[in-house]
């Protein structure tokens, strides 16, 4: 099974199966991963699905739109590899990917 691991702020790990085409946010929500609120249901409107994609995996996630970058810009736990999970479409190429969750969603 191709999987992605979400790591909560306190270190708790959640390995979940990739269903290609589903957004990274939906993948977390559907598997009950805590730490992603996704208030707007994936409209890039709330900024509560912030994840930090680890290292080399960032290249598999595609690039962020201008809107997404602006939403992320003022996020307190902003990192170079910060993304909004609802804007990432998962694929088999992400097998093994690690995404860290911030302590707080804005």
């Amino acid at each position: 099974m191709a999987s992605i691991t979400f790591i909560e702020h306190d270190g708790t790990e959640h390995a979940v199966e990739i269903e290609p085409g589903k957004s990274l946010m939906q993948t977390a929500i559907d598997n009950g991963v805590p730490g992603i609120d996704a208030d707007c249901g994936g409209e890039c409107a709330c900024g509560t699905c912030h994840v930090i994609v680890e290292g080399k995996w960032i290249s598999t996630t595609g690039s962020a739109s201008e809107d997404e970058l602006q939403m992320l810009d003022l996020t307190p736990e902003r990192d170079d590899n910060s993304r909004l999970a609802c804007q990432i479409n998962t694929s088999e190429a992400m097998d093994g990917m690690v995404a860290r969750l911030p302590e707080f969603q804005m």
Binding site: C44, G47, D67, Q70, M71, D73, L74, T75, M106
Partner: peptide, 10 residues
């Protein structure tokens, strides 16, 4: 204006 929105929330 997503940036103004995030700024204002804070």
């Amino acid at each position: 204006r997503p940036q103004e929105f995030m700024f204002s929330k804070k």
